[in-house]
Design a protein around this nucleic acid. Structure first.
Lengths: 195, 195, 195, 195
DNA sequence: GGGTAACCGAGACGGTACGTCGGGTCTTCGG
DNA sequence: CCGAAGACCCGACGTACCGTCTCGGTTACCC
């Protein structure tokens, strides 16, 4: 992140071990129970080294999530917009089902709500890339006539992703596949309608 | 909350002072910086007394929010569904603009993501009442023909409230009034369309 | 020492346990290896509690020494000045032979050389009482004619106690009993001579 | 000191800069506040280089003191023993009045009380040379009849130097010139007297 | 006079302890 | 018996130095 010291001399071993320890502990104990001290001990790394490269536990976790979230943020383009959306959103939801990643994501999300410094990083790492590729896919759909040219992409974004986060913060069950389809259909219909 | 001791002998003065101190400190320093010790000191109350009546800082805050959230959770029924939704959702959003309440709400929301005990209370206090009266209003609209009888109320809930929370957790700007109208129109169109 | 908090509510158990742990650890590991954390752990006491009542490890040790240095600082008055001096100085020297106390005393002495705050306490606790009773005994000796009325008590103090500290800081062997007698005879002769 | 590497290739610049930085920092901040890191930074030298040539901060300081203590350890022989003693002891005392050297000397003395490895070096560098030349001067005095042949040189050493160290560790004011004369007269009288 | 072995600066590393903070429990005393 | 006050144990914080180590770079010796 803010890499004040010389990043060329950084120990790759410590770097990896820290991220791994962070995620592992998160899976085992839950985000809130994880401490920088614990990560350091588990990784066989000194606290100083962690604080040298990251400003806080949240920043470590964010990088760990990024590294672990293997599936791409990008959309595929099969020509079927609804299917592509479903695939991508399922991918996002699946991050919230694996215990370790889920705990880490909820943790950084929660911490991001309280710490504006971390908030920016959360936005940049977790949301921006997905939003960008979402918008790109939508624009492509408009060019290909799959989507009305006058459709409001921002509204579509809100209508599609909103339900996931709504249910997360309200502690309602997360959408399953079929429900996701209903949402996608409804949202596309809404932005496709003539005003 | 879990009121183990005899609530009849509870000091109303301490009770009020605690809730007030909690919100005040939240406004001044932000939720994360508020501590039980700080609340106790500010309220002129002992820590023991706080722990006697609430299990955690989050529970205090939740009660303080409840008490301070003056506008009703219920919907008015002017006969214009879109207008009623707009009014109610604006009310919810306005809670997120006042510094003190916003900080408190974000705080308990964030903490709720990490603490399943608090999560239940958050759901019960913050979300359930609003969802219930939302559904009630929707059903009334269906009876009055303002809304298609086959409209899926759950989907409507997700489409309408989702954008707010999506933008909150993604650290995007919250919707303003006109944008809210677009969302409401889109969501109602979506659930009203013939399947 | 600086007892900022209310000393009436102090836990006697923690107090005693801390002093005991300090001395024990000193005996086992040597003063330099003893840490506040170690004392706290050994005593079953929190670091906070130690820092509440003492400003530093040195202050804890000083009090521990005081409590443990059972033999009185006062001189006996058998009527034989040289014998009384010998007895008292042997007592002082014996503090420097028991491993635990020796280590603690050397430690606070060393630390006192570096920390003027502690220096004052070292002087007040370790030296002042012994110097005072030395001078008192000398004055009594003068009244009883055992010592020349014009003998310089300060010089006597320096000549008598100096050798001990000289040998300590110069890392020479400490005086044994017979050598002590030589010193005492020489010093008394010196201050008793007509100028 | 333990010069494991090839001393011929040693950088004289680094050597000098380190010793100078050590003493300067000592004067500015006091021995206890000086760190190897601080010395390295001030000297523009790497920590590794310091640890290559000295085992510890104390060893650096000891060498720095040795280099800076310009006045000779040797006694002059004017034929007046008391005067020669006074001159030499004043010289020793003057080391304890210059802020930088005083702080360094107190520091190594203090550290020497705790660290037997350093203790040996302290004895060898600071005390042994002075004691040796003291004894030599005393023996010369005996040959020249200035001092009784049967005078005990060890006792004399203790009586003369003792007061300085006694006052140092007891945090009493150090002797001034006139008082020094009293001590010298008393000590010489004591060892000169017929037993 | 080119190769190489050493010292050098810089500074990252695993550690240990620091002194502080807040959590949640417990004790004392007054009303 | 509740409440204010606050001491207590505990565990984590973020920092400071320790002494070790790995880097390039730059001598200075040896072939």
């Amino acid at each position: 992140m803010q890499e004040s010291p010389n990043p060329q001399r950084r120990s790759e071993r410590s770097h990896r071990a820290t991220l791994k320890a962070a995620l592992d502990l998160c899976a085992e104990q839950g985000y809130a129970q994880v401490t920088v001290e614990g990560i350091a001990a588990r990784a066989g790394v000194s606290k100083k080294t962690i604080y040298r490269w990251w400003p806080s536990k949240g920043a470590v976790m964010l990088e760990a999530i990024d590294e672990a979230a293997l599936q791409p943020t990008g959309f595929s383009d099969t020509g079927d917009l609804a299917a592509d959306l479903h695939q991508q959103m399922s991918g996002t939801l699946s991050l919230l089902t694996d215990a370790g990643i889920r705990s880490a994501i909820l943790g950084v999300l929660a911490e991001g709500l309280q710490d504006s410094q971390l908030a920016g990083q959360v936005h940049g790492s977790l949301f921006k890339p997905r939003i960008d590729s979402f918008k790109e896919r939508m624009r492509k759909a408009q060019q290909q006539g799959e989507l009305a040219a006058e459709a409001d992409v921002d509204v579509a974004l809100d209508l599609l992703y909103g339900p996931i986060w709504h249910r997360l913060v309200a502690h309602l069950p997360l959408p399953d596949g079929p429900y996701l389809s209903k949402i996608i259909d409804a949202a596309l219909a809404a932005v496709n309608r003539r005003a």
